[in-house]
């Protein structure tokens, strides 16, 4: 499996409103990687993820997942991807177990297989005792974890997480990172967006920074930290954070 998990070439997106969210983005996520896609609010991260997962139509460019074009074989690429989106979007009237088991159904997994698998994943994510509680009564952090469980139920090779740790407390965040790192050890590729740059610096092996619809930096974390100046702002934070601020403010 040497094909990159994700190959994006000259991707452009202009919304019907006229907003040009992506202006020719090219990006490659190696298979098995923990990849951080960083960028300020409104940079185009969610748009990019939307196109890869088939929720947003592209204006130009091409996208392939594990070498398969998302337009030519959408059913194949969708089966490979697991998405944990930025917005909480499960049916709030449903119980976590049902949310996850239904999601399995959409991938053609029978309930007899999905139920034990869902219980295991929800348990691993610390939701074992909340499985039968109505969705809207979960706390913000629990909802996030339910979103992750839902994304994993069909055992995707490529997991996409759009700010999975927004609103999650420190302790849980750490256990979530451990959980995700363990997944990459099993060979699952992870593409992640986050505004916690210190954590991205510590966990990701590759990083790309997108600003105003353009990639302004991409490479292995090691390389990026080595070749760029940083650590002088006095705000604390990590080196990556300073590089990020420097580059994204330069562009304005």
């Amino acid at each position: 499996m040497n094909e990159p998990a994700l190959t994006i070439k000259n991707l452009e997106k202009t919304y019907a409103s006229g907003t040009q969210a992506l202006k020719g983005v090219s990006l490659e996520v190696p298979s098995g990687d923990f990849f951080a896609l960083l960028g300020p609010n409104g940079a185009g991260k969610t748009t990019l993820i939307g196109i890869v997962t088939g929720l947003v139509t592209k204006t130009a460019g091409s996208v392939s997942v594990h070498g398969i074009d998302i337009e030519k074989e959408p059913e194949w690429t969708r089966a490979l991807i697991g998405l944990c989106g930025q917005e909480i979007n499960f049916d709030p009237w449903m119980k976590p177990l049902d949310v996850v088991v239904n999601q399995a159904g959409y991938y053609g997994i029978p309930r007899s297989v999905a139920i034990p698998r869902a219980k295991k994943i929800l348990g691993d994510l610390g939701l074992g005792d909340k499985m039968d509680q109505i969705g809207f009564r979960l706390s913000g952090g629990m909802k996030r974890r339910l979103m992750i469980a839902r994304a994993l139920i069909h055992e995707p090779k490529f997991l996409i997480l759009d700010e999975p740790t927004a609103g999650v407390d420190v302790e849980l965040r750490r256990s979530m990172w451990d959980y995700l790192t363990a997944l990459t050890k099993q060979g699952i590729t992870i593409l992640l967006t986050t505004h916690y740059l210190e954590e991205a610096e510590r966990l990701a092996s590759h990083v790309a920074i997108i600003n105003k619809g353009e990639i302004i930096l991409a490479g292995s974390m090691e390389e990026v930290l080595k070749t760029h100046e940083g650590g002088t702002s006095g705000y604390g934070g990590g080196k990556l954070e300073d590089i990020f601020v420097k580059l994204t403010s330069e562009q304005t």
Partner: peptide
């Protein structure tokens, strides 16, 4: 979106 991201 749950079903739209799936291969259904």
């Amino acid at each position: 979106d749950e079903v739209l991201v799936s291969p259904t």
